[in-house]
Write a protein that binds this DNA or RNA. Structure first.
Lengths: 340, 340
DNA sequence: AGATTTCTGATTTACGTACCTCAAGAATTG
DNA sequence: CAATTCTTGAGGTACGTAAATCAGAAATCT
């Protein structure tokens, strides 16, 4: 039978109330007594029964998610996952609110961050543009006692407690490794299409990609990155223009969104053998994979990211440090052959 | 505030005791009353508070894991994950026992299965050889009222309730897609190294691999599969012999274990440009990837598999059906660039 | 109708933790 | 030394569900 607080009390030779004070870090216990209790906890291997604890303190965690509005499939998928988490609210004792802001609009994010009331909000997860004003607004919010985690795209200079997303440098390297191997010895140019260099995830992917090409595949030369603001039409025009202008392009790495535009711009498979790697499994990219138009798609599981963000924010609200090893989000690689 | 059993009782116009009888499927309630209560549950959107329920019924789930002994790194990793789950036993209310058997020994598995007492064991997860005797022993155990799940390698003909593992056909296809693209137009032979065709996971991988090569990369011809019983020394000898005999081999797909042997048999990267894809991230394969000796490693997260097995067996012990969509184990692809 | 069986209500206890109050003991201060 | 503050003990209630008992009501059968 696993030990209870009663067993700890008996073992330590103190009362139940004292054990409770120690376990919940309440004041009014002498240092020596605290040690006695903690020793007893160690000896008996006591672990708090989370079920019972949750039952007793019927605490709820008010959280806010901030993400860009607009047609971006990935962001809409992210929103769907947040809504799924809201469905689980009664079980997880969360109260989640979603705030959407215009994409690529630092000022809008700052506005939302500054409007949050620490009395009503326990934690915030946001998809941020990596700009100084957003960073400052995050720091202000943290100073006001709200825990902040970044989602999908990081804010490295800020006081956010955690980044819930993939290692985008590694993602870029992976794309480089794949494209390099898919081109397999052929020399030529690789078109890199990005959304915005204001986003740290796009920046990181571009860097990682360039690093691998430079060191491992020196015969491949990068064209770009072309910035498209993740807009499908812009992507289509940019890719079409680049393919027309540069006949030596043998591969494309699309590290942002607007995948539909990329697909529309791609020439027939037979005409021109391009190695294509894109990001995020969506309806469009899935079909492009299946049809052989894309060779690989790098994906981040936004369900994992949302769940991780909630865990981390809840843990911090309880004064615990998140176990970062457990919260690592993996980079998924999909070929047509392993599409779920 | 979310509704409680008391609210249900009031809403349905019955007593708490009756609500309890209905919710826990206890006998002694008229059909009409059951409907009334269920209607009230629907109306109020009642969901059982798992914390409170777990607290009240202090049930434990005795489970048994059966897996092969021996030096196989993957199996030892699996065992480590099971032991990690045992650490969580107090929280998850499980009582897990591990039984190891000699590898590739159906009779030993049968022996263990037949020795289990339904009174003491609630569920079994096993890494099975796909042979008729094991299948029959599983069916006997199921008939005696013990829930059985297969782990890593399936037993398709049996009455196991669930397979906790990856889609190995898709894994084989993925390997085919990767190797096909890595060879990129070159014609030649591909050596396939397997552990044992008694294992359904190895069978499936080989089939999926062959299917993709046949349909998408007809210039690549399969040599093998060579059976090695997952023994490193046998793998080394087999690969060395094959490479000596067939000078046209340009790629290797190792779909089983004994990865150390494969690494030892591989010629210097410079000498002979081989595309190599293997399975499972272990200490050896990780290093081979990092050194550029392997091009890709396909992995299954055995931590996920163990946790999934426990969830499934617990759910079945409570008479619930597992949500199969949630229990799908993903196929991980690792390059040197995205190694965790 | 009465006897019997089948349902239902009312009530209680337990699970392990959180959190509260009140009183009394111990330690510290002036 | 007394006055004060700090620690501790004892005891209680609450959380929502499970599981049990027992008496009484309702339905079914003879």
């Amino acid at each position: 039978m696993r030990p209870t607080v009663h067993d700890i009390a008996a073992e330590a030779g103190v009362s139940l109330a004292t054990v409770d004070r120690v376990l919940n870090a309440r004041p009014g216990v002498r240092r020596k007594t605290v040690d006695k209790v903690q020793a007893a906890v160690e000896r008996l291997g006591y672990v708090r029964d989370v079920s019972a604890a949750n039952l007793a303190k019927k605490r709820t965690y008010p959280l806010v998610f901030i993400l860009p509005e607009g047609p971006n499939s990935f962001m809409r998928g992210l929103e769907a996952e947040i809504r799924a988490a809201m469905q689980r609210s009664p079980v997880e004792r969360t109260a989640i609110r979603i705030e959407t802001v215009p994409p690529f609009d630092p000022a809008a994010i700052v506005g939302v961050l500054d409007s949050l009331d620490p009395a009503e909000v326990n934690g915030v997860a946001l998809v941020a543009t990596d700009t100084p004003d957003v960073s400052a607004a995050v720091d202000r919010l943290v100073d006001r006692g709200v825990h902040v985690a970044t989602l999908v795209s990081d804010l490295p200079g800020s006081q956010r407690i955690h980044f819930c997303g993939i290692d985008n440098l590694a993602a870029g390297r992976t794309a480089g490794g794949l494209i390099g191997r898919f081109c397999n010895g052929r020399a030529g140019k690789v078109l890199v299409v990005a959304g915005s260099m204001k986003l740290s995830d796009h920046m990181d992917r571009a860097s990682g990609f360039a690093a691998v090409l430079r060191s491992e595949f020196p015969d491949l030369e990068i064209v770009g990155p072309v910035e498209t603001n993740d807009d499908a039409d812009t992507v289509r025009q940019a890719v079409t223009a680049a393919l027309d202008a540069e006949t030596e392009i043998i591969a494309i790495y699309s590290l942002g969104a607007g995948t539909r535009g990329l697909i529309e711009a791609l020439p027939d498979r037979e005409q021109r053998k391009l190695a294509v790697v894109a990001h995020e499994v969506t309806e469009h990219s899935r079909q492009a994979l299946a049809e052989g138009l894309f060779d690989a798609v790098i994906n981040q599981d936004c369900g994992h990211e949302v769940r991780s963000a909630i865990r981390v924010l809840k843990a911090r609200a309880d004064g615990l440090m998140p176990i970062s090893a457990q919260e690592r989000i993996r980079i998924d690689i999909f070929l047509k052959d392993n599409l779920p």
